[in-house]
């Protein structure tokens, strides 16, 4: 950065670097990690808890920066991602790589120092899994890419739980399963109505490789398995009446949506411009938010001594 000529086209601003960390994905990471940490049966000092969530968020953001460095060519083609900092030329690819690596190391070491090394190890594995296994390896080579990528997004509540307890429990495994199994129906619904994007980028989405009929079947199958695990979590110690009520209602609703998607064909979908698929996608966001919110609600009831 020694070039100080006045005709430099664009100077990257702080917000451009922040955008590398995928703030919207980060908000989901923060929320689920916070729930994992708060429902754990161990009282962590609030400041240590705050730092743990911060470092998990930074680690998640770092993996986002690594993903943007690696996927800049795909992002440049897809309408949804074209304005990200690297494909739009605001931040150089090398800078994204450097920030990703530096923040990854920083987040893992700081989480280990603040809480314990199991949590730090899980965070390191999550970053590796998302940046290397998903982004570099499987995203472009298998139509199951979404399933595998979902695992990376499913780790945060497990890391939050590990930060508080120093261990892995059935509760944290089921919270992992909830996000892991939720991801495929969520993204495949998106792929059904954002169709040309992934085709243009050459990413082997299930809709492209196995057809849209198969994708609709897969959405239904994953939603059915998801419902089993979501209700399974209701039997553990972290869940209570709030979670049970939310899980029953949400899963019935979600299954109904998946069934409707399964019954539709392309003509019907195009006739109403994918109204059902769009509604299912929007509802899926609420689905995840309310499940984890309900766990928080039950933790609050326990803390107040009501249940």
């Amino acid at each position: 950065m020694t070039d100080i000529s006045a005709d430099r086209p664009y100077e990257a601003q702080f917000g451009d670097y922040f955008a590398l960390l995928k703030p919207r994905v980060m908000s989901l990471v923060v929320f689920t990690a916070l729930v994992g940490l708060l429902v754990a049966p161990v009282d962590l000092h609030p400041f240590v808890g705050f730092c743990a969530i911060l470092f998990i968020a930074v680690g998640g953001g770092a993996s986002g920066a690594l993903n943007m460095w690696w996927d800049a060519d795909i992002d440049a083609v897809m309408r949804r991602t074209r304005r990200r900092p690297v494909p739009s030329g605001r931040v150089a690819g090398d800078e994204a790589l450097a920030i990703g690596i530096a923040l990854s190391g920083f987040a893992v070491v700081m989480l280990g120092l603040a809480t314990n090394w199991l949590a730090a190890g899980l965070l390191a594995f999550t970053i590796f899994f998302y940046a290397v296994v998903y982004s570099m390896w499987l995203k472009r080579s298998t139509p199951q890419n979404i399933v595998i990528g979902g695992a990376a997004g499913a780790f945060p509540p497990m890391i939050g739980w590990a930060a508080a307890t120093g261990s892995i429990g059935i509760e944290s495994v089921l919270m992992f399963a909830l996000i892991f199994l939720w991801t495929p129906p969520h993204f495949w619904a998106l792929a059904l109505f954002m169709r040309s994007d992934y085709d243009d980028a050459g990413v082997p989405m299930l809709t492209v490789t196995h057809g849209r009929r198969t994708t609709r079947r897969h959405i239904l199958a994953y939603t059915a398995v998801l419902a089993v695990f979501a209700l399974g979590l209701a039997t553990t110690s972290v869940a209570g009446p709030v979670y049970l009520a939310v899980a029953v209602a949400m899963n019935l609703w979600f299954l109904k949506g998946a069934w409707t998607i399964f019954r539709r064909d392309e003509d019907m979908a195009e006739a109403d411009n994918f109204a059902v698929e769009r509604a299912f996608f929007r509802f899926s966001l609420l689905y995840l938010f309310l499940h984890f919110g309900a766990l928080l609600g039950d933790a609050a009831l326990r803390a107040a001594g009501i249940v």
Partner: peptide, 25 residues
């Protein structure tokens, strides 16, 4: 580059506060 410099400065100040707070706790 002002926004970058101010941003990085604030991040560093925040980092110091976190290390200090963690040490106290």
């Amino acid at each position: 580059r002002r926004s970058r410099n101010v941003g990085v400065g604030l991040v560093l100040v925040g980092f110091i506060a976190i290390i200090f707070g963690l040490t106290v706790v």
